[in-house]
Design a protein around this nucleic acid. Structure first.
Length: 556
RNA sequence: GCCCCUGUAGCUCAGAGGAUAGAGCACUGGCCUCCGGAGCCAGGUGCAAGGGUUCGAAUCCCUUCAGGGGCACCA
């Protein structure tokens, strides 16, 4: 049995004990509250602790300590538990048998790369949509945050037994694409020494100049011969393709990839838009007002209605998104859909939820994670991140400066619902002493030990784990076997920032163990035993690094 | 004005209603006869403010203050 299942088992034992005591009249009747067992931070309080007696005290009109005693009298303990005791003001503490702890090393070794995988998702199909940046400009740091968050969640959900599909939604139509085309057309003309003014709301970044030059070099001046509207739309098409290529490359640098790249335009060609609108129409959620078509979300408890089709006949972004989610739920039948959006889209969340209601789906099946903005700094100086200004720091530049692994670790260390400062100077300055290297160093150090052991001892499969009895060894085992719970927690809360903290803790415990316990020594039996523990640690470290999308180096 | 997010150590941030609130960075001391010193050990300050709920609140509720984001026939 793994630690994570044992924990659940103990919860049941506690409930059983209460019921048993109640049946025998030792405890008065009262409803059992939900109360998970926790790992106390103070080792003196054991491996598990429950505050159940404190919760029951009021309803039972007894002192928590008295309740705790009665529960202890009636509890039937699993064999893995060594001891149970009560502690003021009303806790029940449990400690694990040391020989059980040591056998866990064998389980980790047996699981290998699949160590930490759990069966939470039961094969449920979940779609994870993230990044989805307009293909009209390069990615910046804020996008990197969403990318790292999404790809890590995908890794964790996969490890948790979900069938995950990662998708990038391409906004390849609408105003911003027209605008992009007009901007490129102006740049293109400028490249060919023609006078041309950028659109007033155009994309002013220097990358549009590079793009225009590139197109000119590849295709010459042929667009000058076309009518303006034709030239802009063709340039937009080419520009979007090139931008997407760049976005894809930048994401690869960050170790982020997708299963699908989904085109917004395809929703109009494939009929999803029409079908979704028909559904809303027949549900009575559509109204015509002032020459436009509206989604009557106010009838679903929303603040206000929203325009779907403008008076000029063009559909809004919202209309596309409705068709897109129709496709996700109705056509592709995902059990669960997770969208990761920037903070500037938060107002869009209730509207999308209302759409699900209108389509007859439980809004809970759509989870939107709002990723707060990143403020980029160079020391004291705040760097404005604006797509429209010529001066932006791209994600690629940041990756080139601090490296992909450090970048990922940094983004992951902050929970999504808080804005974060990304200080480039600090990131660079700390790069030699960064926690990311601390964790990777632990992995490399183990690899080095194993290399040495391969020469001196060779096969250590006969190592006897029951020799693992000292405090540094047991502490390390305890940390190693915590991983499945971390994975479960991240999958349940969709908060991957627990991963880097776990990784760091694991590295700390390992380094401390290493200082106190010689691994490769003259004691052959103990050497083989400790090699097993060290290998198990490496497995856990490699797993958490891989979930975070980071390298687990053999040498540094 | 209304809605969402955030306020924890000098800085960047963790913290699952529970026991003495934790890391990293920075700062100061120690520690290499021995498997990687990118390491180990030690040193101290803090929950924005005020109410409330609770046996118990950094955590839940209300108010205030501060920062960010939204409130388009933009996306």
């Amino acid at each position: 049995m793994e630690l994570i299942t044992l924990k659940k088992e103990l919860t049941k034992c506690l409930q059983q004990a209460v019921l048993e005591a109640q049946q025998q009249g030792a405890l008065p009747s009262a409803a059992l509250p939900e109360l998970p067992i926790e790992h106390p931070q103070n080792p003196e309080h054991g491996d598990f602790a429950s505050g159940l007696p404190l919760k029951l005290a009021r309803a039972m009109r007894m002192s928590p300590m008295a309740i705790a005693e009665k529960i202890c009298e009636h509890i039937v303990l699993p064999p893995e538990i060594d001891k149970v005791w009560i502690a003021a003001p009303g806790f029940i503490n449990f400690s694990l048998r040391k020989d059980w702890l040591s056998t866990q090393v064998e389980s980790v070794l047996a699981a290998g790369e699949s160590y930490g995988d759990i069966d939470l998702g039961k094969g449920k199909r979940v779609q994870l949509e993230f990044v989805s940046v307009n293909p009209t400009g390069p990615l910046h740091v804020g996008h990197g945050r969403g990318a790292v968050l999404g790809s890590t969640l995908a890794n964790v959900l996969t490890a948790s037994g979900y069938a995950v599909e990662k998708e990038y939604y391409i906004n390849d139509m609408g105003n911003q694409i027209d605008n992009f085309g007009r901007s490129l057309y102006a740049r293109y003309q400028q490249c060919l020494d023609k006078e041309a003014a950028m659109p007033s709301d155009g994309y002013l970044g220097n990358y549009t100049i590079d793009l225009a030059k590139e197109i000119m070099q590849e295709q010459g001046d042929r667009f000058l011969l076309l009518p303006e509207s034709e030239a802009t739309s063709q340039l937009a098409e080419i520009g979007v393709a090139k931008m997407l290529q760049r976005i894809k490359q930048d994401l690869e640098l960050l170790n982020v990839d997708f299963d699908n790249w989904f085109s917004e335009r395809s929703l109009y060609q494939g009929g999803q838009y029409d079908k979704a609108m028909e559904l809303l129409q027949s549900g009575g959620y559509i109204a015509k007002k002032e020459n436009a078509t509206w989604f009557e979300s106010s009838s679903l408890g929303e603040d206000k209605d929203n325009v779907l089709v403008r008076s000029d006949g063009s559909p809004t972004y919202f209309a596309s998104d409705i068709a897109y989610h129709y496709n996700k739920f109705v056509e592709r039948r995902f059990d669960w859909v997770i969208d990761i959006w920037g903070a500037d889209h938060q107002g869009h969340v209730p509207r999308m939820k209302a759409v699900l209601k209108a389509l007859g789906y439980d809004p809970e099946r759509l989870k939107v994670i709002i990723c707060q903005l990143v403020t980029l700094r160079r020391g004291e100086e705040i760097v404005k991140v604006s797509k429209r200004s010529g001066d932006i720091i791209t994600l690629k530049e940041v990756i080139d400066e601090v490296g992909s692994d450090a970048c990922r670790f940094f983004f992951l260390s902050r929970s999504a619902d808080g804005q974060m400062d990304f200080d480039l100077e600090l990131a660079k300055k700390q790069s030699a002493d960064n926690p990311v290297y601390y964790v990777q160093y632990a992995h490399a150090r183990i690899a080095s030990i194993l290399r040495l052991a391969a020469q001196r001892v060779g096969d250590y499969s006969q190592g006897d784990v029951s020799l693992l009895t000292t405090e540094p060894e047991l502490t390390l085992i305890r940390q190693v076997i915590l991983l499945p719970e971390i994975i479960e927690r991240v999958a349940a809360t969709l908060e991957p920032h627990h991963l880097p903290y776990y990784a760091q803790d694991l590295a700390t415990v390992f380094h401390s163990f290493y200082k106190q316990c010689r691994v490769v020594s003259k004691d052959e039996a103990l050497t083989k035993t400790r090699l097993k523990l060290v290998k198990a640690t490496q497995i856990a470290l490699a797993k958490v690094l891989s979930l975070m999308g980071m390298a687990a180096p053999e040498k540094m």
